[in-house]
């Protein structure tokens, strides 16, 4: 009996260990290709005319190509690169918004994307109504949102304005509410695309605090920013993306330095 217990606990340990070291996010040779028409044909009428004239040709544009990456559970990964390098495309792949043209994306766990400032809110609705609307967009049920509601308003510090239409909110208040809804409960994977740069300084500190809390509780975080200071503060590892390919991947300091050097040229 005791012998059994020992072997069982060993198995148990091993299992937990493998599940802990399991990759939360895996990109295998991923590519995303947009088909861009040589001239922008956005109307059906135009399409029919051009087609009849034989003038339509498509150009392929690879926003990401041959990207392989695996992110461990609990890791905070910073993504850096020029505008248009493919950082946001990569986040979209992980958030299930885009399906890769080639390759494979595997994500284990609940993904919480922090919406860009104001996305999914309606200006004519009150803060209260928008919390429920935004929660539904994130996939929560009505009951879950009712349970979350007080915490969200507490965190956003918006009790005084909660029944006011959001058109009367300042941009900082929009950002606060958006962050509070998305970052209420611990997700397995958190995606942050530049949102931290909105809101006043006090709220920025507060939201970074919440993020660090998630990190310490084992969330995997993907963080896109042009602010190298916050990348250094948050991340365990940095990936530099350049023209749709991984240019460097590794220790925070060295990747940032390499990136900075290339910009100096």
């Amino acid at each position: 009996m005791s012998l059994h217990t020992v072997s069982e606990s060993q198995i148990l340990e091993k299992r937990v260990a493998t599940s802990a070291s399991m990759e939360t996010v895996q990109l295998e040779n991923v590519g995303v290709c947009y088909r861009v028409s040589s001239e922008r044909v956005s109307s059906f009428k135009e399409y029919v005319i051009r087609r009849a004239q034989g003038k339509i040709s498509f150009r392929e544009f690879w926003a990401l190509r041959e990207v392989s990456l695996s992110i461990k559970k609990g890791e905070v990964l910073g993504l850096i690169g020029h505008n248009g390098a493919g950082k946001s495309t990569m986040l979209k792949l992980i958030a299930r918004v885009l399906r890769p043209t080639e390759g494979r994306v595997v994500v284990r766990g609940q993904v919480a994307p922090l919406l860009e400032y104001g996305a999914g809110f309606h200006a004519d609705l009150s803060g209260r109504e928008n919390i429920f609307l935004n929660g539904a967009i994130l996939g929560f049920t009505r009951q879950e949102m009712e349970e979350k509601f007080n915490r969200i308003v507490d965190f956003a510090e918006l009790w005084d304005f909660i029944d006011v239409p959001m058109r009367n909110y300042s941009s900082g208040m929009w950002a606060r509410l958006g962050f509070a809804v998305a970052a209420d409960v611990q997700p397995d994977v958190l995606i942050i695309d530049e949102v931290l740069s909105v809101g006043d300084e006090a709220f920025q500190r507060k939201s970074i605090g919440r993020m660090l809390e998630f990190r310490d509780n084992g969330a995997t975080i993907l963080f896109v920013s042009h602010n190298m200071a916050s990348i250094e503060l948050m991340c365990h590892r940095v990936v530099w993306i350049d023209h749709g390919r991984v240019r460097a991947d590794g220790e925070v300091r060295s990747v940032i330095d390499a990136y900075r050097q290339s910009q100096g040229d």
Partner: peptide
């Protein structure tokens, strides 16, 4: 129970 998304 962990939801797994696999694009493939």
């Amino acid at each position: 129970q962990i939801p797994i998304y696999d694009s493939a």
